[in-house]
């Protein structure tokens, strides 16, 4: 239990650092804004109570906000992701339900399950985030292109990260 907690904490710190030091500084055209930190929220334990999930999401979002001068925007998007997560988990529940030892990762649940799970939630997160970001500029065509391209890039990065950490024994 405590070991698991430390795993989550280390993952959080590493993903936040990758996000704010590398991904936020990529010299890509403005339509590519990839975000890797939602992976931390995706990988939280399946049976985590929803109130705790929401609070963790809020804090994680605020941490990213703190580093990218987007006060509240990532927090709002992360809280929405956390709120939708139990619904999505229920939607794609394998027949026979989740086992006690299951973790919502590519390693445990296989690529097809994880791809569906991550895609739905990352799309929700990015839609909401870029929608808030665009509200004041009003360039909705640009926003749609940005959502499409940034979401694809984020998902690609998230899948690659998960593949990188896949364990040999479960193959």
């Amino acid at each position: 239990m405590i070991i698991d907690f430390f795993y989550q904490l280390i993952r959080f710190v590493v993903l936040v650092l990758i996000q704010v030091l590398i991904l936020n500084n990529l010299l890509l055209p403005g339509v590519f804004n990839p975000y890797i930190y939602p992976l931390f929220l995706l990988l939280l334990p399946i049976r985590m109570p929803i109130w705790l999930l929401l609070l963790v999401g809020f804090v994680a979002g605020l941490t990213i906000d703190l580093f990218s001068n987007t006060m509240g925007m990532h927090a709002a998007a992360s809280v929405l992701l956390c709120f939708m997560r139990p619904q999505v988990l229920k939607l794609i529940e394998p027949s026979g339900g989740y086992e006690q030892t299951d973790k919502p990762s590519l390693n445990h649940m296989g690529f097809r399950w994880f791809a569906t799970y991550a895609s739905i939630l990352v799309v929700i997160h990015h839609l909401f985030f870029f929608f808030i970001e665009t509200l004041e500029f009003g360039q909705f065509g640009f926003m749609l292109l940005k959502i499409l391209l940034s979401t694809s890039l984020s998902l690609l990065i998230i899948f690659l990260t998960e593949f990188f950490f896949i364990r040999r024994k479960s193959r």
Partner: peptide, 22 residues
């Protein structure tokens, strides 16, 4: 409905932060 209430509370605080920062 504690989950939903908490969700609304956190979203509202986020929006307050966004608006204040403007």
């Amino acid at each position: 409905y504690h989950a939903f209430m908490l969700f609304i509370l956190l979203e509202v605080s986020s929006i307050v932060l966004i608006v204040n920062n403007k």
